[in-house]
Design a protein around this nucleic acid. Sequence first.
DNA 1: CAATACTGTGAATCAATATTCATACTTTCA
DNA 2: TGAAAGTATGAATATTGATTCACAGTATTG
Lengths: 223, 223
Amino acid sequence: MAYRETDKTRARRESIRQRILAAAHVLVVEGGFGYASMTAVAARAGIATGSLYKHFPSKSDLFSEVFRHATQKEVDKVAMAIQGSDHAVLRLQRAVQTFARRALKSRGLAWALIAEPVDPKVDEDRLHYRQAYAKLFETLIHDGMLRGELPQQSASVTSAALVGSLAEALVGPLAPGQRQWLETNTGAECIARQQTDDALVDALLRFCLQAVTGTPYPREAPL
Amino acid sequence: MAYRETDKTRARRESIRQRILAAAHVLVVEGGFGYASMTAVAARAGIATGSLYKHFPSKSDLFSEVFRHATQKEVDKVAMAIQGSDHAVLRLQRAVQTFARRALKSRGLAWALIAEPVDPKVDEDRLHYRQAYAKLFETLIHDGMLRGELPQQSASVTSAALVGSLAEALVGPLAPGQRQWLETNTGAECIARQQTDDALVDALLRFCLQAVTGTPYPREAPL
DNA sequence: CAATACTGTGAATCAATATTCATACTTTCA
DNA sequence: TGAAAGTATGAATATTGATTCACAGTATTG
């Protein structure tokens, strides 16, 4: 006998694996899943196509991992924003803002995660992703109803509708200016966009809070 | 010279063309665009694969036409529901109900039109489709604001968010029980579904109207 | 160093469909 | 009727991109 896995080789393996994941992630951010072929990933990671299969059994597996990783980070942020024992409306407000701002900050990724047509296998992960958000909202709404902070309603329908409105208004086909992918922008353009983005977040916040509470936003009295 | 197009040949041509479109439509309703290969369409229409290309230059063109046709019908129905000079809230209510009931009545088609991952060419048509809905809502909201029947808001954001919540709650990945495609249902199951469907429409209606008006639904006083 | 077991390579293969095309059949009309 | 123009056929071809594989390269240990 003459070979055994050692720390060094394991580390090396792992580092290549990470390099592949990073390369795939970058490609997705830049052009979405459709743009990220195995050949492109390999080229970007600086290895041969075949080598990819030494680390991931198939394309689906690779991208599923990319998707879940990117996704988990987003969900965590929203979960973070939603937690606490404040008034349910405040928590919802934080959640919506967090989701919206992050999506607008990296539209390419948001589009890939939320809206891009993708391989069915990855689409299953997306289902989990959306469900994760919906679950967060659902729990919050239940909670709020129990505590008398929100009117009675169907938590499941409301949460699905919330996810839908966020997705569509921010990164779906109806999102304002969705074809700006690889554009380089001047400083002035960035500032202008920042302002319209703020307005967008605000309008959306209003939509969501009114939908859930049935009262005008902004409210007359603070919570 | 010895041949010229005649009424008879033209009629025959047209009838085959329609037969192809109908076959494609049926396949889409049954299993979505992914299920509808050219071979399948040809088989269903009772002609050879190659013959399809005598009538449509490419698959994209064929399905684009199928999509637009199916789509136009849906949009027209909602446009019909939205028109009139009633209070804007009533008109919105009719529109949402129309959209929702129709989607639930034929989920397969709704899924294909709204949510299924499809060929990019067809996806452009989908963009128009969603925009057509959004446009209807947007006009309605503008109108309502002018007449003082709706509070001031961003009509574009609100309308996109409305489209998103309808799509997601009814046929998106979060829609309840979306995997029932070719199932045959017993009578009891159909009745049960009818009830949950009604509840779903109602909850969604509430969500949409509250979002737009900022007041509780159902309202205390009729309009 | 030799033997062993793994890792990397990238051109060749595979798979799934859309699309073409040589051939055979139809229709039209002088 | 038969030459002209069209239409139908479906097996063969083209395309795209994932996946494999025979071979070459690298670590590891005795």
